[in-house]
């Protein structure tokens, strides 16, 4: 159980919203089973359409925004909320990087254009993009899904007036502490070295290689990892595709340029 402190200041007004997405990040917040009720003692959840009918949208101290911008309606909601919000938090991979749906930016345009079945959709659709392409974002809680404890710690920190710290270490750091066998040694396509951790290397613990859902570390050395994986016999196209699966739009600029070369 979360320890409660008496805070003199008024409770921060918090909103949880989702635009186009899968609701998994919002669920991660709710799935803090022991802490969701105590949480309402330190923050005032004024809007959460997924589980709440009433909403007070007059102004927010903090808003957690799940999902990516994929339609004009998404953009309208996002801009409207941004204007009323002091601290906007990108919640999860889609909001932070565009996530899996943004992979569409890298596949042949014709391929998905054929999936559009009527005019209205064509008018409504926007290129899938993370929310910071459109509005200013104060904090990022990455991951697909974000770690539920990370969400909780983040809210507690903000409610107590502490500035949440950004985590910069790669997934490999925690993975080693967890004593997992290294996938790279086995020649498997693992993106741990270039991906931001603080996920407790949950995928590798569970037997899966890191797909890079939390985005690149500030000092990620993609070229070294690509050549290492290539030496182990993995096709470069596959390596680059995997790197784009979750965070393609947020790979460093040069990576994107390489991508152009490789396409032509």
């Amino acid at each position: 159980m979360m320890r409660l402190r008496i805070i003199k200041m008024t409770k921060p007004k918090v909103g949880f919203y989702g635009i186009t997405g899968c609701a998994g990040c919002l669920l991660s917040a709710i799935f803090n089973e022991d802490d969701i009720l105590p949480l309402t003692k330190i923050v005032d959840i004024v809007a959460f359409p997924f589980i709440k009918e009433k909403k007070d949208e007059s102004g927010f101290d903090i808003v957690f925004m799940e999902g990516l911008v994929a339609s004009k309606e998404d953009l309208r909601v996002l801009k409207e909320i941004r204007e009323k919000t002091k601290v906007l938090v990108s919640l999860g991979a889609c909001a932070c990087t565009g996530g899996v749906p943004a992979f569409r930016n890298f596949i042949q345009h014709d391929d998905y254009q054929r999936l559009v079945f009527h005019k209205r959709m064509k008018l409504e659709d926007l290129e899938p993009s993370p929310i910071d392409k459109h509005v200013k974002v104060e904090y990022y809680l990455p991951g697909c899904p974000p770690d539920k404890n990370e969400i909780l710690t983040f809210i507690k920190d903000l409610a107590l007036g502490k500035k949440p710290k950004r985590y910069d270490k790669p997934v490999c750091f925690e993975c080693r502490l967890n004593k997992n066998k290294c996938f790279l040694d086995k020649g498997e396509l693992c993106l741990g070295p270039v991906t931001v951790g603080n996920c407790n290397s949950v995928c590798v613990n569970g037997g899966l290689v890191c797909w890079g859902c939390r985005g690149p570390t500030p000092d990620a050395n993609f070229e070294t990892l690509i050549s290492l994986l290539h030496e182990k016999g993995i096709d470069i196209v596959n390596i680059r595709d995997r790197m784009k699966a979750f965070v393609g739009l947020k790979l460093p600029e040069e990576e994107k340029k390489n991508e152009q070369d490789y396409k032509t």
Partner: peptide, 13 residues
């Protein structure tokens, strides 16, 4: 009123 994600297209390839 969700935006479209075209998953079936994404899976191809």
């Amino acid at each position: 009123t969700e935006g479209s994600r075209y998953f079936e297209g994404l899976l191809k390839g």
